[in-house]
Design a protein around this nucleic acid. Structure first.
Length: 435
RNA sequence: GCCGCGUUGGUCAAGGGGUUAAGACGCCUCCCUUUCACGGAGGAGUCACGGGUUCGAAUCCCGUACGUGGUACCA
């Protein structure tokens, strides 16, 4: 919010700029002062409704009956201003005209000014409405392309007229009215409330309500990668015409084209959003994931000092992580003994033979100074055979001893990664729990 | 109500006069794997409706329905 070529950026710090342009419009007859109270506006709408009018707008049809500088004598207007009567500045829309412009997505658009009302440009508190602010800011900040949601189309006529009156149509940016992102369950554009209600994020990052202090989780904090977030947003309402769905930012810069943007809104699908993240986690090398994963693990109180091990672990488990937060469960046990062991999953099929097997396995490991995956797996199978046990029925108990539950990559991979000492300790620990 | 914009499976979508109407997510079955995934092979499911135009319409035209946005001193 500081510096840059076009500061200040806060609307409140630009009040005088907007006022200057609003005044200019009044002077040139394109806008006027209006002193109507909320009650008077309400009364006007009631009256219009009573006459069966289709339009409840403050426009050419009613403005000469209202309390504004168009109807009042100049002296009366001045008197009201001088005695501090609150007023707004409204644009004066001429009836029976057509405003034309070209939209990059929708082509040539024509708006009948009879359907446009005399929008407020400057509010009674001196702040601009969006209509004035967007035009003034876009001009002053030299905006070349204005991309916005399609909910702005009906008021585009106001903005174009403002450009015409204030800066000339030649300086106007190119317009693109993008399709809306809709609620997954129908009825309306996506809002923060839908995320809360349906259990998914709507904002990119955590957002705290300034009044209630309530925090709404963002995509980032939920464990989404920036790459995935950009990707899923880009293909919601656009595709490149091929079967490609995964695009990096660089590819999007190269391939994105306005012509292929849809006109209709798209419903947001959180399942697909998660799929994008999963794909990106699988796609990125450990080095790119390292920082994010480290943060996740450290936030969960795991101590990460060995980057080589971390990278190895990431490669080992990333395909089973949909969100970055999944790394805590999938990778945590590589760095610390499991906090709890799912004994209930072992017990039902546990017997003395298996107990014996693991005791023998421990002994064999202690004798053998080697510790690599292939030897371990072979040794495991030999001892199993010697005890007339199928390796298969020993794998699950072994897994649970090492990771605490029924998850994680191949058990021998895990044993190799955590090392001999941790492996033996975890076996002994679980064996003691099974007594 | 009025004024816009839109409409291809549950969702995202390709296709813009002749296609067996792609593909992806999700769902189901099987294979792989004695965990969970990944991967692989299959499956169910679609052109909103009604009229035209045309030899032929998902595709062009009109109407209807539905959805969606706007109709604020909100953005």
């Amino acid at each position: 919010l500081h510096g840059g070529a076009f500061a200040p950026y806060r609307q409140s710090e630009r009040k005088e700029i907007y006022r200057k342009y609003a005044n200019k419009l009044v002077e040139e007859g394109h806008a006027y002062y209006a002193f109507d109270t909320p009650e008077e506006l309400e009364a006007m709408r009631e009256k219009l409704k009573a006459t069966g009018s289709n339009s409840l707008q403050y426009d050419y049809g009613v403005r000469m009956e209202m309390n504004n500088s168009l109807r009042l004598l100049p002296a009366e207007t001045q008197a009201l201003i001088d005695n501090g009567t609150p007023y707004v500045i409204r644009i004066k829309i001429n009836p029976n005209e057509f405003v034309n412009f070209t939209d990059m997505i929708r082509g040539d658009i024509e708006i009948d000014t009879n359907n446009v009302d005399d929008k407020v440009l400057l509010k009674a508190d001196g702040m601009p409405t969006y209509h004035l602010a967007v035009v003034v800011d876009d001009y002053l900040m030299q905006i070349s392309h204005a991309f916005r949601g399609e909910e702005w189309m009906p008021s585009a006529a106001v903005h174009i007229l403002l450009w015409k009156y204030l800066f000339g149509l030649d300086a106007m940016p190119q317009w693109a009215h993008l399709p809306l992102i809709l609620k997954p369950d129908g009825n309306g554009k996506l809002s923060k409330r839908d995320g809360d209600r349906l259990g998914f994020p709507v904002y990119a990052m955590d957002w705290q309500d300034p009044i209630s202090k309530e925090i709404t989780k963002g995509f980032k904090e939920l464990g989404f990668l920036p790459e995935a977030f950009i990707n899923l947003l880009a293909v919601l309402g656009w595709n490149d015409g091929t079967e490609q769905e995964l695009f990096s930012l660089e590819e999007l810069i190269e391939k994105f084209s306005m012509e292929r943007v849809h006109k209709g809104g798209a419903k947001f699908d959180f399942e697909k959003a998660k799929w994008f993240n999963h794909e990106w986690i699988k796609k990125l090398p450990a080095a790119s994931l390292r920082l994010n994963v480290k943060q996740q693990l450290e936030a969960a109180a795991f101590e990460i000092t060995d980057t080589i091990l971390l990278d190895k672990v990431i490669e080992l488990v990333k395909e089973r992580c949909t969100l970055l937060t999944d790394f805590v469960q999938q990778a945590g046990f590589f760095f610390k003994d499991p906090a709890s062991i799912d004994i209930a999953a072992i017990k039902p099929k546990w017997d003395d033979k298996k107990q014996l097997f693991f005791i023998e396995l421990l002994k064999a490991c202690q004798i053998n100074s080697n510790w690599d995956m292939v030897d371990l797996e072979n040794g495991f199978k030999e001892i199993a055979a010697a005890n007339q046990l199928k390796p298969g029925e020993l794998m699950l108990p072994f897994r649970i001893m090492l990771v605490g539950g029924k998850f994680g990559p191949g058990v021998f991979d895990i044993a190799a990664a955590i090392g001999k000492e941790a492996t033996l300790n975890r076996i002994e620990h679980t064996l003691s729990l099974l007594q």
